[in-house]
């Protein structure tokens, strides 16, 4: 059993030229929490997900990696400001938000490796063709559980 036998081969994707606002709308419509981002040739460029949205709302001091503030329990909340930040990000291209927290796997990757990645990171896993890096599908936790319960 490898990931090609269980992956979702036609996932909802978004083009790298699309905007943050359109990506958010697509996630809402299709009820997915991550979108693989692809270019015109179908090559995988990264994943747009909720973490990218949270990132636009947080102060920079919380996004400094190891040196970040450890918590924000002492700051004041201003809903207006957060609203403005979210709206302000709407027209920015998704290409600005691509991070690759999960390195893509290949169709012949063992399912156990996918399970290990879920255990460690809990993010949907993109599957790309060897060599071309074209998106072949994605694996979410449900693909694995469904395959095991059939």
């Amino acid at each position: 059993m490898n990931v090609s036998t269980i992956m979702n081969a036609s996932p909802v994707t978004i083009s790298v030229t699309e905007t943050f606002g359109n990506a958010l709308r697509l996630m809402e419509e299709r009820r997915v929490h991550a979108l693989p981002v692809v270019d015109a040739a179908g090559v995988y460029k990264g994943t747009f997900d909720f973490a990218d949205i949270w990132k636009t709302l947080l102060p920079k001091a919380a996004l400094l990696g190891m040196d970040s503030l450890t918590d924000l329990s002492f700051v004041s909340d201003a809903q207006e400001i957060l609203r403005e930040k979210l709206a302000g990000a709407g027209s920015r291209p998704v290409s600005e938000f691509l991070d690759r927290r999960v390195e893509p796997v290949h169709p012949d990757t063992p399912v156990k490796e996918a399970i290990l990645l879920f255990y460690r990171l809990d993010e949907d896993i993109p599957v790309v063709e060897r060599g071309t890096n074209r998106l072949a599908g994605i694996v979410t936790p449900w693909e694995i559980l469904n395959a095991l319960r059939d």
Binding site: P59, K60, A61, A62, L64, D67, S68, L69, V75
Partner: peptide
């Protein structure tokens, strides 16, 4: 001190 400074100046 610097992370708190960045928080305050951003605010």
């Amino acid at each position: 001190i610097v992370p708190v400074t960045l928080l305050i100046t951003e605010e």
